[in-house]
Amino acid sequence: MSPSRSVRDLVSKLVLGRGARHAVAVLVAFAAASASAQSPPKLPDWSGQWENVGATPSPDGGFYEPLEQVLKTLEWAPPSKPEVQAAVDKMVAAQRKAMDAMRKGVDPGGAVTACSFGYPALMIESPLMFEILPTPKETALIFSSREIRHVYTDGREHPGKDDLWPTPWGDSVGHWEGDTLVIDTVAVKSAFPGREGISVNAFGGIEEMQTVALLSPDARFGERIRMLDKDHLEDRITIVDPKNLTKPWNLRRTYQRVTHIHRMVYEDCEGEERNPIVDGKFTLTPAPQ
């Protein structure tokens, strides 16, 4: 199925507002253009390592920016449907309760872990550094968690319904408009096993977080990535999710050049774990001798 048709099908199944119809039309244009676009004669030089402005990790294990500041300075404001917002509010209340327990050193329980951030977290909220490698037929975004986004710019469409299934990174096709990489991503699911919905979260300070939005597995993501200056990239993201949002959600994120290291260094999700939970409390074990 062509991306245009799949979006039209989506529209035909759901009642959309005027704004949503406009955004879907834009995404259809993205997808249609991606099917016929050719790579530019000269690909932009985005070499180097990049990090999300406003999600910068600090040596103490937290973030430089407190959560309150992150919520104020980064764009959020999802147009969530009332029932979805109610679910988000419920999650936030539970998160605050859990954070209160953690501030007392107590494990709130119910651990669920994942070694991947997944999309769109990698672009919106992740503290991981990444590289972007544009090639004539594909641009790869490589993150320090060893997660990779493959954006095919060879004119292909998204796979047909029988050949497409949701993953934490989705399926991305794109095209170049001058020096701007335009991406269309579908078939995204939560990075957490067993969960279909995708949570968008804000992080800050020391172990502060807040879920900002919940997206459905039907969410469709448009991106426009371009270089602002030699040290900054910009990603303008449009999320269309008629199941959970009343209208398209527009977000902007900027990425700055990593200045103190000039090669990719990968994270290790497991490694030398020295903080086991014992009798419901977080602990620290001595260094292995």
Binding site: Q95, A98, R103, A111, S199, I206, E207, M209
Partner: peptide
């Protein structure tokens, strides 16, 4: 990162079933 994953895990929790990973700075 593991800590961030802990927070993500918490984010994944729905309703009262908030979740927390094995690693934290809560100690």
């Amino acid at each position: 990162k593991t800590k961030t994953h802990a927070l993500l895990a918490m984010a994944a929790g729905l309703g009262a079933r908030s979740a927390l990973a094995h690693h934290s700075f809560a100690m």
